[in-house]
């Protein structure tokens, strides 16, 4: 698998279909690797412990200046690529994906090809069962118990914003937490500021999250961020049929509407 990935990456550079390849390095932690010479493709690596979502680099100016770019992309990263295209953040024809799934190399795809692959072979990607069970368990608790659970979890947050940096969906040039006139979210790494930050981070991904898990993997404090992401993903699917990352021309869930949306909770 690794051999096929390396050969294909080298070929893309040789044929000038890509000027830059972003992949994973073999050394501990599997950091991102930026390659522009075909001979360096031997250093590319992939296995399931590569948790970063490399689509997050596409919005960085240093990367977009070196297009066309090809990224090593897991299925979730492929979905991110499609979401970014739908949100006009990735120019079609400027980004290629070297698609990988667990221990298989699936080939090189442009965005339309990636969407086609996902629709035909992986039509119901969603949260893992264990994650949904965690959401279910939490939902069964009383509101007071839920508040206590999150009070304990959010108290660990140091507001390093590693979750934001790791997320392909967090590409705003100026994030709400950096706006200070007025100060919407307290910057102190304490109770209410941590609550606001974590809630807004999750909410801004609602209907867009591809459940890649990069935020949770990046969190140095081990916050269960995927519990929030998974709950919102299921909610957006149930309420609005949202399947982010399958249609490069799809409309975002928040930002579009239908007169038929449910409002049984409205008085």
């Amino acid at each position: 698998m690794m051999k096929a990935l390396r050969q294909e990456a080298a070929k893309l550079l040789q044929e000038k279909r890509a000027a830059l390849i972003i992949g994973f390095a073999e050394r501990e932690g599997h950091p991102a690797l930026f390659i522009s010479k075909p001979e360096d493709c031997e250093r590319l690596f992939y296995d399931v412990s590569c948790r970063q979502n490399l689509a997050a680099y596409l919005s960085k100016p240093e990367v977009s200046a070196r297009r066309p770019v090809a990224i090593v992309a897991s299925l979730a990263a492929l979905r991110s690529l499609v979401v970014l295209t739908a949100e006009s953040q990735a120019a079609p024809g400027q980004v290629l994906a070297l698609a990988v799934d667990k221990d298989a190399f699936l080939g090189t795809f442009d965005v339309a090809g990636a969407a086609e692959l996902l629709r035909s072979k992986y039509p119901d990607l969603g949260p893992e069962k264990a994650l949904l069970e965690r959401v279910g368990e939490l939902s069964k608790k009383s509101v007071v118990e839920r508040a206590a659970f999150w009070a304990e979890e959010f108290a660990k947050c140091t507001r390093c914003y590693a979750c934001r940096a790791a997320c392909p969906g967090c590409y705003c040039a100026r994030c709400i937490v950096e706006k200070n006139a007025p100060q919407w979210v307290s910057t102190a790494a304490l109770g209410h500021g941590n609550y606001s930050w974590n809630i807004m981070r999750a909410f801004h991904q609602s209907g867009r999250c591809t459940l890649c898990g990069a935020c949770e993997a990046a969190c140095p404090q081990g916050l269960p961020l995927m519990v929030l992401n998974a709950a919102l993903d299921r909610e957006a699917l149930e309420e609005f049929g949202a399947r982010p990352g399958y249609d490069p021309e799809g409309k975002p869930v928040i930002g579009s509407w239908s007169a038929e949306d449910d409002h049984s909770y409205m008085r």
Binding site: V135, A148, G207, A231, D262, H263
Partner: peptide
């Protein structure tokens, strides 16, 4: 619709 669910989950 989505936000109220998120708040319910977090207390």
């Amino acid at each position: 619709t989505l936000f109220r669910k998120l708040l319910a989950l977090t207390g």
